[in-house]
Nucleic acid binder design. Structure first.
Length: 269
DNA sequence: ATCGGGACCTGCTTGC
DNA sequence: TGCAAGCAGGTCCCGA
């Protein structure tokens, strides 16, 4: 998916078009997403949008009648288009707004989801999430404490939403490289000092990517249709076989939790 | 409790 | 040129 910086960029892009508007009605062309689109999402109409927020990689659209949760999965995109714009093949959901615009959801792989919480912020998928990576609640001490006795690879550890949210496959690789930590190292065998470095790297790479408007990957575009510019700053992601920017060694490839990982065998221990 | 793996789905790239 | 295999940003759920 869009990772956290992309979702944050999308939130910033779409929220000015949504807040204060009424939802006239919904158009659901393809209800079979990751889960079937709930009836409450399909049928709600004539309600005012009061807030647009992000929690982890969920976009939360709150109305007087309840809250929609949108997750973009691997290939989901949200755009603002004028009402009447012809839908393309994978344009599955439209939220038609009172200002003549449409929030349009497109998702070729359909790994994303539209969910419904009658009480805002109380959906099951939000219940067990760890802290936001850019908040003060997330730091090296938290990583160190939560890693005690754990033998899983540190890469899958930091990608676990119960530990910290919003660290996806791209930025996990980038942060581990920046911190000089080998992605396969057991989470429980990393010092507190190194976890401080890792937490700082996670914050730094995510903050920088948000500033740049996200990473442009294939079909990712911001809500206004313009690409993000972080891709040109990626140090290891997608660069297996190329030279390490720090030491010149050939970057290696591995697999963790069925996701590919690129790292430097010399810089990362 | 922790973990690794399977599942969901389409489209693009790679290699024979 | 054609076709099959491999790979892609996520994350819930299951069994060991």
């Amino acid at each position: 998916m869009p990772e956290l910086p992309e979702v944050e960029t999308i939130k910033k892009g779409v929220s000015p078009h949504l807040i204060g508007q009424r939802i006239l009605h919904m158009v659901v062309r393809q209800p079979q997403l990751r889960w079937p689109v709930p009836e409450a999402v399909k049928q709600l109409k004539q309600v005012k949008i009061t807030a647009v927020q992000r929690r982890a990689k969920y976009l939360l659209i709150t109305t007087q009648a309840g809250q929609r949760l949108v997750n973009l999965g691997m290939s989901g995109v949200l755009r603002i288009v004028p009402e009447g714009t012809a839908p393309a093949r994978h344009d599955h959901v439209d939220m038609v707004l009172s200002n003549g615009q449409v929030l349009r959801y497109s998702d070729p792989r359909r790994f994303g989801a539209w969910l419904w919480a009658s009480t805002p912020n109380e959906h099951k998928v939000l219940a067990h999430l760890g802290p936001e990576p850019l908040s003060e609640a997330f730091n090296g001490d938290l990583l160190y404490e939560r890693a005690r006795q754990r033998r899983q690879a540190v890469k899958t550890f930091i990608m676990d939403n119960r530990i910290v949210v919003g660290v996806g496959n791209i930025y996990a690789q980038e942060a581990l490289f920046m911190a000089g930590i080998h992605p396969s190292r057991a989470a429980g065998r990393i010092s507190r000092a190194r976890y401080h470095k890792l937490a700082q790297a996670i914050k730094q790479v995510l903050a920088r990517a948000i500033e740049a408007g996200g990473t442009t990957l294939k079909d990712f575009l911001k809500a206004d249709g313009h690409p993000g510019y972080f891709q040109q700053e990626l140090l290891v992601y997608g660069r297996a076989g190329e030279a390490c920017v720090a030491c010149g060694a050939t970057l290696l490839k591995a697999v963790h939790g069925q996701r590919s990982t690129v790292y430097c065998g010399a810089c990362q221990r």
